[in-house]
């Protein structure tokens, strides 16, 4: 019987680490063990390896947790508009005449090879980089997750929540509560006392994405957020993007991988930068 308990303990741990409430995790695990007993089988034999079974269960809970609205989201007001945006670095013309109109409730994917100026475009949308020419109009309520260094390796996740929450005037407790809630939606329970530098690459990116969402923005800018994500996390991430869309935000994702082109509202392809 001890191997069953070991299996059960593993399942419970993975469920909790994926953001399931501990009491719920215990209840579910007990039920799985009981069912295995009924079937007269070893749990690992009936359900498969503990870790993969638990991740499947966690994902099932997450994806059915919110009711999906059957209606098309109403296309709202414009949250981002780029008109003939150009960016030149000395002799290199990185972006040429980019046009994009993104409304609340839409998802835009910016694709292109490395070096095609995707990150620069995102920087222009964020206000970090100034465009050489063209106009940029953008709502002030903004969330931004840059590709690198968006996270401080020496601070814990909770401390990040404190910082980003304080910008919005949230108290520490509220910041941590909001941060924790958003993390659970991505299937992750931040552990106290673990600094960001010690998190795996995929988990760091999850933190990155959560931080961009803390002020309930109208426009969310994400740069290649799933480098280091495994297949499950990739699927979760896109589920989250579409949930944000339903909640009424506009989302701009910069990527070089695009799985489901049909589900995205706009695809902007950037050609390789030219020498001029």
């Amino acid at each position: 019987m001890t191997s069953a308990h070991v299996w059960g303990a593993q399942v419970r741990d993975v469920l909790v680490a994926s953001g399931v409430e501990p009491r719920e995790a215990r209840r579910l695990t007990d039920e799985f063990l009981a069912e295995a007993q009924t079937a007269g089988q070893d749990p690992a034999g009936l359900y498969g390896p503990a870790v993969s079974y638990a991740s499947t269960i966690a994902r099932t809970i997450r994806t059915t947790a919110t009711r999906t609205s059957p209606l098309d989201p109403v296309r709202g007001r414009v949250v981002l508009r780029l008109s003939q945006v150009t960016k030149r670095y000395r002799r290199r013309l990185v972006l040429r005449g980019v046009d994009l109109t993104l409304r609340a409730g839409e998802v835009a994917a910016v694709v292109g090879a490395n070096g095609s100026g995707k990150s620069t475009l995102l920087g222009i949308c964020a206000g970090v980089v100034r465009a050489t020419s063209g106009t940029v109009e953008r709502t002030p309520r903004l969330g931004y997750a840059p590709q690198e260094h968006g996270v401080s390796p020496l601070l814990t996740a909770a401390e990040h929540f404190d910082l980003f929450g304080a910008v919005q005037g949230m108290s520490r407790r509220r910041s941590r509560s909001v941060g924790g809630q958003l993390s659970r939606q991505l299937g992750w329970a931040p552990r106290p006392g673990v600094i960001a530098g010690h998190l795996s690459g995929g988990t760091q990116q999850k933190l990155n994405v959560v931080l961009s969402q803390m002020n309930r923005p109208d426009l969310i800018l994400l740069d290649e957020p799933y480098q280091g994500f495994d297949q499950d996390a990739y699927v979760d991430f896109w589920e989250q993007v579409f949930k944000w869309r339903e909640a009424g935000a506009g989302v701009l994702v910069v990527t070089h991988l695009l799985h489901d082109v049909e589900r995205v509202d706009h695809v902007l392809e950037l050609p390789r930068a030219e020498e001029s």
Binding site: P140, H149, G150, L163, F164, V167
Partner: peptide
Amino acid sequence: RLDQRLAVVG
């Protein structure tokens, strides 16, 4: 970079 990110959101 972190400060830049914080400045972007206000």
